[in-house]
Write a protein that binds this DNA or RNA. Structure first.
Lengths: 196, 196
DNA sequence: GACAAAATCGACACGCGCGTCGTATAATAA
DNA sequence: TTATTATACGACGCGCGTGTCGATTTTGTC
């Protein structure tokens, strides 16, 4: 069987193939039929592992590797300039923004707009909190090094939230209104300017 | 017939009833059947006016009255404080944010995530541009009155964009992660602080 | 009232996606 | 090899949404 490739779990295989479908069509529009087709397996074969698109979708999102924070931690350990660390992070986010239609993230947005799912919600919130935390610590690090002086230690969390919210806003604009690379650059620049 | 209420056009009636369905279920999940039911008319009756949910949805969005800018224009004409004008606008936006699940806007987000529709896109972009413009002018007005001094005349458009993007980000967070009223207040406050 | 035009109805045939289940195939053990 | 178990298949009946179209009702006009 071409399906059970040596050493690859069937579930992993399904999740991988299904992810491509969700990326393209979003969550709501996807049917079990679509996934059967994308996987090249039978209805029965699929139902043996998953009994709804929601189950599959959750699995995909949970398996998504979390954000990699080593960028921040290593930067601070090596005593790099805080502004450089943040700028690098923004650069990385910008690149993701520009290829948002090739990741599962767009489908996740759609999912949350009209579906409630506590488990997924918790996962996303957790991720959000972690990101706020690491940015916040980086800001504090920058303040301590006198590289960031327009905000105080008390502001770090607020400002970290502010940054992420702006990135979310840019995401939505990128998805629905096709904003330019220049606008993104310009906006990220403003954020830096509000720090130094 | 209870349907053709005196003086109300059939299309208006359909649009009104259908809007409630889209508000509740989003765009993708809605069927013609749903709308037939919501309107209390027959399949044939509906198809005489609209032949797809997309057509109806577009009509709803086009009929949505545009944002009311009199708030800004009147404020400036009466020489009100620019910060007060902006704060008032934010307050208004905040209230909308908090009841986003009762407006068509959430469905519009969903629509744009996975559907292309030039006409609708243009309408939304146009609206966006107008909002940037009026905020930008208000900022310039505030700078001229020495109420806003952390930015210059050249920055007004960038900063206006910045504000709207932040509001969009807050929208998404409000929809998917149930942010608190306090967080919104805190974030809007930061925007004001970056001006004065 | 009588007639024509317009509006409305709802039954119908069709296709699709669903979830199931008996059968067939493959893997494992004896 | 044979027996046992796990895995995979796909046909089936079902319900739902679709778009159509002839029949029916309402509206407008003389």
């Amino acid at each position: 069987m071409a399906i059970t490739k040596k050493g690859i779990e069937k579930k992993e295989y399904i999740v991988e193939k299904a992810a491509a479908v969700f990326v393209q069509k979003g969550f709501t529009a996807v049917t079990m039929e679509d996934i059967v087709e994308a996987c090249g397996i039978s209805r029965g074969g699929l139902y043996a592992y998953y009994s709804s698109t929601k189950e599959i979708f959750e699995d995909i999102v949970f398996r998504e590797k979390n954000v990699d924070y080593s960028f921040f931690t290593e930067g601070m350990e090596n005593e790099k300039n805080s502004i450089q660390i943040l700028t690098g992070f923004f650069e990385q986010q910008k690149n993701e923004l520009l290829r948002l239609d090739t990741t599962i993230r767009r489908a996740v947005y759609e999912f949350f707009l009209f579906h409630k799912e506590a488990a997924l919600e918790d996962a996303v919130k957790q991720n959000y909190r972690e990101t706020v935390s690491i940015i916040s610590r980086t800001l504090a690090y920058g303040i301590a090094r006198n590289e960031i002086y327009k905000i105080t230690f008390e502001d770090t969390e607020k400002v970290a939230n502010h940054m992420i919210i702006l990135l979310e806003g840019l995401s939505i604009l990128a998805l629905s209104k096709q904003i330019s690379r220049d606008l993104i650059d310009e906006q990220l620049e403003i954020m830096i300017k509000n720090l130094i």
